[in-house]
Design a protein around this nucleic acid. Sequence first.
DNA 1: TCTCATGTGGAGGGGTTCCTCCACTTCACT
DNA 2: AGTGAAGTGGAGGAACCCCTCCACATGAGA
Lengths: 197, 197
Amino acid sequence: MPLVPAPQTPDRPLRADARRNRDRILDAARLAFAEQGLDVANEEIARRAGVGAGTLYRRFPTKQALINALFEQRLDELEPVFRRALAADDGWAGLVDLLQAAVALSARDQGFLETLAYELGPEVPAHLFDRLFGPMAELLARAQAAGDARPDLVPDDLPVLLHMAGRSTGRRLDGRAMGPEEWPRYVGMLLDGLRAC
Amino acid sequence: MPLVPAPQTPDRPLRADARRNRDRILDAARLAFAEQGLDVANEEIARRAGVGAGTLYRRFPTKQALINALFEQRLDELEPVFRRALAADDGWAGLVDLLQAAVALSARDQGFLETLAYELGPEVPAHLFDRLFGPMAELLARAQAAGDARPDLVPDDLPVLLHMAGRSTGRRLDGRAMGPEEWPRYVGMLLDGLRAC
DNA sequence: TCTCATGTGGAGGGGTTCCTCCACTTCACT
DNA sequence: AGTGAAGTGGAGGAACCCCTCCACATGAGA
């Protein structure tokens, strides 16, 4: 018989109130990050979720843990797009689909945009990025095989290109917001440069 | 005779020591911003310049004033490129020249890159941006007249496109820095998308 | 119902940053 | 050399921000 009580199983289900609070934190953080970007104060998130700062930190020991959890949620949302794009025959069309879906999400969610920015990248576990860039790489290979994409493109180019495309969303110099009917034109121009000539 | 002493002329020349300190602040700030980006602490800049925080604030009442002064210096450096590009016949080549020069500067100088990012834009006086985008707009018009650039491009597109191009510099997802022999390829792809088909 | 492991809120510790203030020093002009 | 305006440094105020701690509350199994 052990002298110390058995360590609690790491994935023991949360108590009902704790689970509820966890969900409220995620919802509040998602909204706050989407509106204002990742450097919202944690206390603001706790306030909007209606919990104390202590509760937030019990559930997400660091801010990065919260960001990663939200990033995973966003990838779950993109899952249908992944499947649709991979199921179709046309690799190029699928790649365009996926890129535009990711940029559209960035346009709606400042936090997602900033998580994708490589300046913040090293903090996010690589396997999360792989969920996004794995399918893209597969589609790129198919598009190249079909002669639709530039042959010199390699999978490592995709994060850079997505980052560039993402920057077409956001505010203009004069402070005017970029409308959802404006940025696809810029992404289209970049895609034109990626197409095989 | 006025009861109060005449207000000092606003552009009275600085005392020799003050002028020297101002220059040292600008040099230190340029280096610090270039290396680490705009959110270096002012105290760090003062330390590197060998002056006190008070001196820094006497010369540049806000951090933004310092950033604007440095941005103007960078535009002065680009002046020869402006002139060369505008003097040549080929509008498209000049536009490419200018864009690449600006991105090259962004690659070397994190502070310049961040100043160009429109998230920070509204703080910088519009006339400074005009110095950069005015020549670009002129070259775009010439390139379009020659049938080299997409006819649907308008001057307002240029800041967005420069911002996208600038994001090809910087770190990759795995933390590896983007070498000066790597980013021109990405800028080239974007430019391919801007060329008239 | 009773019990206690689990969960909670929010004050506050420790850190950072921007900027102000003012007693003191230095320059430039006579 | 003397004088006053201009300039200086650096302590510290005010506002943040991330995160910890612990007295107290509460859910859930017995």
